[in-house]
């Protein structure tokens, strides 16, 4: 790993100052992606600003309308939060299925979505629930926030402070893990929300996206049968040594049906 200047600010204000003070400064949350990337010199920041000391980014709040999760909340803390489980159990499932227990003990919500790995789990939950990303400058919808492959709408020196997840009537997440990396080869987050049925897909493309044809079929009739004859189009989906686009498209259909079945037959949400 190349060396760097390490700073651990005590306040958000101080952190923003540290990030703007030097070109090629990078914020670090749990470091579960950034540290491996730095070891491989895929990332070589001159200055690392550790966000671990910031009180402003912590905590989980729940009200009748939404679950608001602080950016530095670990996956473990979300997965095991009784408050989150009571409001959006599917969110606990998403967080509890990321990486492995040791990664979940340090990896954070903010870090995961800022990285926007095309196979990450959280982006599917954000897009599926029409969540809002709160930053130090503004509020963005999930659709605005996730721009593309490892790319987000975050500007230089802009930090995620929290994510606000509206409470859906019901939701479920199903993923098919790559047997090698254990990342989602395909993951499907389905939700019945105030704004209609939303189905978000991760892993299959360059970034998270909504499966419009599946949403339309489920709007007509929210049932597994509504998807049985549906063939999800493979245009633009990933092809790699593990799976080609047709296989990914097939998995989107299978996982969407499983998610719908979970919503209908297993739990209320």
């Amino acid at each position: 790993m190349r060396t760097f200047e390490y700073l651990r600010p005590a306040t958000l204000q101080e952190a923003l100052g540290s990030l703007s003070g030097l070109a090629n400064s990078k914020p670090m949350a749990g470091g579960m992606t950034l540290i491996p990337a730095m070891k491989m010199r895929l990332s070589t920041p001159a200055r690392l600003v550790d966000l671990g000391g910031l009180e402003e980014l912590r905590g989980i709040r729940v009200d009748a309308a939404a679950v608001t999760v602080g950016a530095s909340s670990t996956h473990e803390s979300v997965a095991n939060s009784a408050l989150v489980r009571a409001a959006i159990p599917a969110l606990c499932e998403v967080a509890g299925g990321i990486g492995d227990p040791q990664v979940r003990n340090r990896g954070t919500l903010g870090g995961s979505i800022a990285n926007n790995d095309p196979a990450a789990d959280y982006p599917a939950a954000l897009l599926g629930l029409d969540a809002q990303v709160l930053t130090t400058r503004r509020t963005l919808s999930a659709a605005e926030f996730f721009v593309g492959l490892f790319d987000t709408a975050l500007g230089d020196g802009e930090l995620i402070t929290a994510v606000r997840f509206p409470v859906p009537a019901a939701a479920a997440y199903e993923k098919f893990k790559s047997p090698a990396s254990r990342y989602a080869m395909v993951g499907v987050f389905a939700a019945r929300t105030a704004g209609g049925v939303r189905v978000a897909v991760t892993g299959a493309g360059a970034g998270v996206f909504r499966a419009g044809v599946i949403e339309a079929a489920l709007e007509e009739k929210f049932s597994v049968d509504a998807l049985t004859s549906l063939r999800f189009p493979s245009d633009g989906l990933n092809t790699d040594i593990h799976a080609d686009a047709q296989y990914c498209a097939h998995l989107v259909g299978v996982l969407a049906r499983r998610a719908v079945a979970r919503i209908l037959y297993v739990g209320r949400r």
Partner: peptide
């Protein structure tokens, strides 16, 4: 390389000592 930091298991090859 798993050890415990403040009572939780972590991968010590992916934690900066300075933190």
């Amino acid at each position: 390389c798993v050890v415990h930091v403040d009572g939780r298991s972590v991968k010590s090859c992916t934690v900066l000592a300075v933190a």
